[in-house]
Amino acid sequence: MPYTNDDFAEYAAGAWPRLVRAAHLLTGDFHEAEDLVQTTLVKVCARWRRIPREEVEFYVRRALVNNNLSRVRKRRVIHLLTPLLPERVHGRHAGHAEHVEERAALAQALAALTARQRAVVVLRYWEDLSEQETAAVLNCSVGTVKTHARRALESLRAHPVLAHRLPESEAGSKAVPGTGAGTGARS
């Protein structure tokens, strides 16, 4: 049974928050993230009826990452980063100042990564994809994913605020500070 426009509207509405969070980590800017997701969903909508049902998530992730890489290649402009993920701006809790500082440090550290390294970090540690799945989304080899992940983690470990939060090696631990990744919880 082929997809309908109603199927796409339902998918887009349900996936929007998750896609915006992933795009925010890719772009470093909430408004750019919303634009990236909107552009991606417009392109996906045009091909919606031809996407096999079992490949929708893969297709959308790949389109999101590819659209971001195209955006980076076209603009080559330094973007100002929002220091907080939008859904956490208004929350007050014990340790809020430390949490805000950690989020700002994470955003700053992610901004220092290359677009491909950032894509690998977001897909591996935020979206919780395996190395093979990440390689498929990025259309590269598993070795390339491992190299980008290793270099990205080295760069993140060099950041003074994040150094104590990252594992010494990628094997066995997938926690990236402030994301909730690897735990099944999303911030």
Rank of each mutant, 00 (worst) to 15 (best):
E54W: 00
E54N: 12
E54H: 08
E55N: 11
E55G: 06
V56M: 07
E57T: 15
F58P: 04
F58Q: 13
Y59G: 06
Y59D: 10
Y59V: 08
Y59N: 09
V60H: 02
A63V: 06
A63E: 14
L64K: 01
L64Q: 01
L64N: 02
V65W: 01
N66G: 08
N66C: 07
N67H: 12
N67F: 07
N68Y: 15
L69N: 06
S70W: 08
S70N: 09
S70K: 09
K74A: 14
K74H: 06
K74W: 09
R75A: 11
R75T: 10
R75C: 07
R75G: 08
R76F: 14
V77L: 11
V77I: 13
V77H: 08
I78Q: 08
H79L: 15
H79V: 15
L81K: 00
L81H: 08
L81E: 14
P83V: 03
P83E: 06
L85C: 04
P86G: 05
H90C: 01
H90V: 02
H90Q: 03
G91W: 11
H93K: 10
H93P: 01
G95Q: 07
G95K: 10
H96E: 13
E98K: 14
E98Y: 06
V100Q: 09
V100W: 00
R103Y: 00
R103G: 03
A104D: 02
A104E: 03
A104L: 05
A107N: 03
A107W: 01
A109Y: 04
L110S: 05
L110Y: 04
L110E: 05
A111K: 12
A111E: 11
A111C: 08
A112K: 13
L113P: 01
L113M: 04
T114Y: 11
A115V: 13
A115I: 12
R116M: 11
Q117L: 02
R118N: 04
A119Y: 00
V120D: 01
V121L: 05
V122A: 09
V122G: 03
L123H: 02
L123G: 04
Y125N: 14
Y125H: 14
Y125D: 08
Y125S: 14
T134Y: 03
A135D: 05
A136G: 09
V137H: 01
L138S: 05
L138R: 10
N139D: 15
N139W: 15
N139P: 05
N139C: 13
C140G: 07
S141G: 13
S141C: 07
S141M: 05
